[in-house]
Structure formats: C-alpha cells, structure tokens
C-alpha cells in the first residue's frame, strides 16, 4: 500500500495515547486503596519478615541483632539433637491439633453442609432467597457472639448439661469446655456457612436435565448422586472445604474462648509469643509459617476455581 502520509498522526499513536491515559487514570483511582492496604496490611507483613530474623528483647519487642533463633525455634522441633526438645513437643502438638481439628471441622461441615446446600438450592425460587438468607445471617453476625453462644451451650451449667442431667443420662455435668471437642464443635458451628455457600452456588448451577438423563438411563437416586451429581458439584465442594479449612487453621477467637489456656491452636501459639512468651522473632516466624500454609491452600483453591471457570 502507499504511504499513510495523510494521516494526522503516526499509526497507532491515538490508541497508545488513549491507553496510556486510561492506565494512568486507573492507577490514580486505585491509589487510595493501595496506599491504605500497603500501610496497614501488606507492608507490615514485610516488616514482620525482618523481625523474624532479629533477637528477642528482654521485655518483649526485639533487639536489632541478626539471629536465626526465631526460625530455629519453630523448625527445631524435628531436630532431636537440640536441647530445646521440650518446647518442640509443645509446638508439635499444637501444629497437630491445628491441623487435625481443621480437618475434622472441614469433614463435619461437609457432612452437614452439602445436604443443606442441596436443600436450599432445590427450593422453589421464591423460598430459596429466604433459606439463603438464613444461611447468610450467621455468616455476617459477630464471630465472637456466635462463639459465646456455643459457650453458653456447652458450659458445665450450660443448656446441654442441664437437659442431660434432667433426663438422667448423666449424674454430673460433662466437662466439654476447654477441650479439643469444644474447639472443633465451635469451629464447625462458626464456619458452616462458608461450606454451604459455595456448595449452594455449585448446585444452583447444576443442569438438572443431566440428573434426569441419569435416571432415564436406569440410575437409582444414589447412583445418580454418586456418578453424576457429585462429580459436577465437586468444584464447589472443594472450594467450600478450603474456605473452611483455611480460617480454621488460623483461628484465634474460637480456640481462645472455648479451648482455654491449655488447648492452644496455631493462632494462640503466635499470640503467646507476643504476650507471656516475649519472643517476637519466634512469633513472627510462626506467623509467616501459618501464612505460607494458608497461601498453599489458597493457591490450590484459585487453581481449582479457575479451572472450573474454564470448564463452564
């Protein structure tokens, strides 16, 4: 083709100008949010990385001397030759409690959450909103308040013991508070909506003609559930599992209220280092460990949901 001499601008220049201006405008608009989050959320996390390599101060805080002690004290648990063996046991059992309780909570929420989500999603449209609302309300109400409600229920003088005593099943109150059971029970209660909501979304998207096709091809209800429905809502189930597992792993309030001072979880162990433990570098290192664990779970989650998007 002949030259584009008549064009009053070089090829593509107007588009580039517009794009540059657009990008600049979008960055400027995002700036306040970015500034707030960098100052009061993301930035401090980076500072914490530095703190994890310092020496604990005598009355909390840190001395500005480089040290690997903070990280050692978390990793050392597996090192039998180290003389901090006793501490290692305590950490190890806390890690294990965090992991196992999170897993149990996830399984429990699965068992009751999936049928609940199914129930809500298969309601006629008018009623569905109402049931969904009932699931969502606890989700947005104060976590501490909900934990207190569980405490009311399982205390020695709580409603459960009261009823059991009255019926005569037990002679003296069961000690439920300050046990691992209390923590698991409380977390199941508190995080249940996080399971129901994504599973609901998956069931809601389910094409019921596929289920009808399965029935048409001689599948019983349970076979249809196992062979057709379950594989189709699996992404929602995995999403829900991770959404429950992750906050359980980092839970602080529920184990503190229901587990008391002895049954610590990861979050409480971290707090301990900034309180009575007076070992900020260890606390920082533990925090970063927790963060890493959560990140792994979340990356898993993102990969699953993006694959789900690609499929649908």
């Amino acid at each position: 083709m002949s030259a584009q001499a008549e064009t009053p601008f070089p090829p593509g220049a107007l588009e580039r100008e517009a794009e540059t201006a657009d990008t600049r405008r979008r960055w400027l608009l995002s700036l306040p949010a970015i500034a707030i989050i960098v100052c009061a959320a993301a930035g401090p996390l980076l500072v914490m990385v530095i703190y994890s390599f310092l020496t604990p101060g005598d009355y909390g805080n840190v001395k500005w001397e480089f040290s690997l002690e903070g990280w050692m004290n978390t990793i050392v648990q597996r090192d039998i030759f180290d003389d901090t063996l006793i501490w290692a046991d305590a950490h190890l059992s806390i890690f294990w409690r965090s992991f196992s309780l999170s897993l149990i909570t996830t399984i429990l929420t699965l068992i009751i959450g999936v049928p609940t989500a199914w129930f809500v999603a298969t309601q006629p449209p008018g009623r569905r909103e109402f049931w969904l609302f009932l699931v969502t309300v606890p989700f947005w109400t104060n976590l501490l308040v909900r934990t207190i409600a569980i405490q009311e229920l399982i205390r020695s003088e709580g409603v459960i013991n009261l009823v059991l005593l009255k019926i005569g099943i037990i002679d003296e109150p069961l000690q439920m508070m300050f046990t691992d059971f209390a923590i698991g029970f409380g977390m199941t209660y508190v995080y249940l909506p996080l399971m129901v909501l994504p599973v609901y979304a998956a069931v809601d998207k389910l094409d019921f003609r596929l289920v009808e096709a399965a029935h048409d091809l001689y599948a019983s209800r349970w076979t249809a559930f196992r062979r057709v429905i379950l594989p189709l809502i699996k992404p929602g189930i995995i999403a829900g599992s991770i959404l429950v597992f992750v906050p359980c792993l980092g839970a602080y309030v529920t184990p503190r209220v229901l587990g008391g001072g002895k049954n610590l979880m990861f979050g409480n162990l971290i707090e301990l280092q900034f309180g009575a433990g007076r070992n900020w570098p260890l606390g920082a290192a533990l925090s970063l460990m927790l963060m890493a664990a959560v990140m792994v779970a979340l990356i898993f989650y993102v990969r699953i949901t993006s694959r789900e998007k690609a499929d649908g």
Binding site: R26, W27, I34, A41, V47
Partner: peptide
C-alpha cells in the same frame, strides 16, 4: 491494563491472610 492483577491482588490481600497474622504484623 499493566498492573491490573497486582492491584486486584493487593485489594483482596487482607481477605487471604489469617487475621492473627495481620494483627501481629500490625502490632510490630
């Protein structure tokens, strides 16, 4: 646009980190 993913990740960052971790970092 350049940086979109980063801005998006930053905005959602507080949702992804356990509260206790953020709390401790802010304390420091």
């Amino acid at each position: 646009f350049p940086g979109k993913t980063m801005i998006y990740a930053l905005i959602n960052q507080p949702l992804m980190i356990p509260e206790i971790v953020t709390a401790v970092a802010l304390l420091i």
